[in-house]
Design a protein around this nucleic acid. Structure first.
Lengths: 203, 203
DNA sequence: ATCAGAAGCGGAACAAAGTCCGCTTACTCA
DNA sequence: TGAGTAAGCGGACTTTGTTCCGCTTCTGAT
């Protein structure tokens, strides 16, 4: 489990000094603009201009809008992942599987709820956030926990269903159109995890 | 259950004759182009031109690209929904809940697999296919079945998790990147449905 | 048949994501 | 220190979805 892939930090090895400084400026400008106007009122042009760089620079660095967004979210997810690997139970190792799943799900959904969903909504279809985004790193974590606890399962499928429940559009829908409390969404996710665990528990 | 909303047919009431004819021509042109080149190589311009109408006409009729796509998919989904309401078991009424869920899930995923997923991928983020698209009509069906069978559940949340599993990007990912067999995806969905049913079965 | 008015229409204009390519500049290695 | 070179840069350009608005056409009542 120690080879669980951390969300990649910028490859500090082969990066030119000006490039690094540009990356920092882009991230700072984006953070500021997103906070000030909301992510859906900020174009890539806006960010480039505010950062004082050209479009080519942004796209060389981050690939596309989704890449920039994921980079902005990287910090908090690196922290959560650190806790999963080396933190105290129940987030970290040591607690029973069900409790670890619950703790993880609640933490992850809390992040979604704290502005992340709105940012992910603007990433379009280009790459499913589920596949390239922050959650990609959590698949392994879920799969490992499930594999231990319920070996009879199609663990990969179950993992997918758990990760799909972090979908930003779903979250925004439930939270703001249906006006669900955060806790209801978290409880629902925990119930889903429990349902999978109950399918074929390791005896 | 008889008030389950059918996927809306064009409101034949207040529609001018020329408008109706234009709608037909747009749908025909789109069907043909999508089949010929694949949905990701057809722009809205292409469709308008092939149909011999202006952009304004398309957008007045269908709202956006997603709307056009959903309209194209409407026929097959109206047929499936008809079967759910009045068809023979296990798709239609009469069979045990688990069997009805399985039959429905398999049928719906088969449609996804048959070209639908690629079409939905091009609809972008504008509207979650899950909320406005074909699956919106299936939420009620799932909720009713689940409510009968497992009243202790948060039926709405469970419904969402089942519908999210029809996500087009997920399907394309599993099917073509991971190269899963169609049956594995269908089996996975059935297992998810069973897991929910097992949580708090009606005695 | 006529006519008023609303519904519908076309296509130019706009916005924003993402690409391209010739120029610039930071690093490397004598 | 002084080329050589590859990485990096800027911003115009392309593409595509979507909107806007002045004009046209259908329709129902008279």
């Amino acid at each position: 489990m120690e080879n669980l892939p951390l969300i990649e930090l910028p490859t500090e090895q082969t990066e030119r000094a000006d490039a690094a400084s540009n990356r920092r400026r882009i991230l700072e400008a984006a953070t500021e603009l997103f906070a000030a106007r909301g992510p859906d009122c900020v174009s890539m042009q806006d960010v480039a201009q505010a950062a004082g760089v050209g479009m080519g620079t942004m796209y060389r660095r981050f690939g596309d809008r989704a890449g920039l967004t994921f980079a902005l979210l990287g910090e908090r997810h690196r922290a959560l992942q650190e806790q999963l690997l080396r933190g105290a139970p129940p987030l970290g190792p040591g607690a029973p599987v069900a409790e670890r799943l619950h703790a993880f799900g609640r933490a992850r959904i809390a992040l979604l709820d704290d502005g992340e969903a709105q940012m992910l909504l603007t990433t379009g279809n280009a790459a499913s956030a589920t596949l390239r985004g922050p959650d990609a790193a959590y698949r392994t974590h879920l799969a490992v926990l499930l594999r231990d606890a319920a070996p009879a399962l199609d663990v990969e499928y179950a993992t997918n269903s758990l990760v799909m429940a972090f979908d930003a559009r779903l979250h925004v829908h439930l939270r703001y159109e249906r006006e669900w409390a955060l806790e209801r969404i978290q409880d629902g996710w925990c119930a889903l995890a429990d349902a999978w665990l109950a399918v074929a528990p390791a005896t």
